[in-house]
């Protein structure tokens, strides 16, 4: 999976790259509009992560450029501006998703995964790990072929864990993933604890392994090496 990260801030670009490389992605970075344009002409990428504010041009124009090149890449826009107008403009001209800074890296990864799933239609609705299988399309989760009765949030949580295996997911990251814009001010993360607890209980009941562990009070981790 090839990803181009267009972000003028080198540290931020390297954060994203570090995270994605560990997940097995092939990542390249561009710090300028010019450089990005060159790369886009010469190479093909499955996904483009694009910061709108570049020193030598506006990211929106790059989106237009990518679209006119009949490029099949998915586009994920990063922006420091949290405004609906920007979001709508970005999505209107062909971006596939939009993420506001500051964002969580696992969140970015989970959005990327969703983009890939949408792109590669063939049989990719299934996210599987050992005895756990999740169908993203029908929103069904099975453990040992046993259908779990999960709430919407519990399903999202399980998928989030499966996509970010062996990663520490902090309570904030989980809360923001599950509740989106509604999280701010929800300083009390008991909700996250409750959901994780319920999910673990339901998996154990279906004789699944308890992969989800708490880590140093930092958050939770889906540990595949039990």
């Amino acid at each position: 999976m090839k990803v181009l990260i267009i972000e003028d801030n080198k540290e931020l670009a390297s954060n994203i790259k570090d995270y994605l490389v560990r997940e097995g992605y092939v990542c390249e970075t561009s710090y300028t509009y010019f450089n990005a344009e060159n790369k886009l002409i010469s190479f093909h990428y499955d996904c483009i992560i694009l910061d709108l504010m570049l020193p030598d041009g506006h990211g929106i124009n790059l989106v237009r450029f990518i679209k006119t090149e009949k490029n099949q890449s998915s586009i994920l826009i990063l922006s420091a501006k949290n405004s609906l107008e920007d979001k709508i403009t970005g999505l209107d001209i062909g971006a596939d998703d939009y993420l506001t800074k500051p964002f969580h890296l696992p969140e970015l990864h989970s959005r990327l995964k969703a983009l890939f799933r949408r792109k590669n239609l063939k049989n990719d609705n299934l996210v599987e790990f050992q005895e756990i299988g999740v169908n993203v399309e029908s929103r069904e989760a099975r453990v040992n072929q046993h259908l779990l009765t999960l709430t919407k949030k519990e399903f999202d949580l399980l998928l989030f864990f499966l996509i970010n295996k062996n990663r520490i997911l902090t309570r904030q990251t989980i809360a923001e993933h599950l509740w989106g814009d509604y999280t701010d001010n929800l300083a009390n993360f008991d909700f996250v604890y409750q959901h994780v607890k319920n999910l673990r209980k339901k998996i154990s009941k279906a004789k699944g392994n308890d992969y989800i562990t708490a880590v140093y009070g930092l958050g939770y981790k889906f540990n595949p090496n039990l």
């Binding site: 954060n15 995270y19 560990r22 800074k101 500051p102 990663r167 520490i168």
Partner: peptide, 29 residues
Amino acid sequence: LQTPLSIIRGKLELLMESDINDEQARLIL
């Protein structure tokens, strides 16, 4: 502030992923 905040948060998230012990986790949290 958004970009530096993103960077710090990302670095901390990456740091958490590295081989850290209990004491370091208590500092990161």
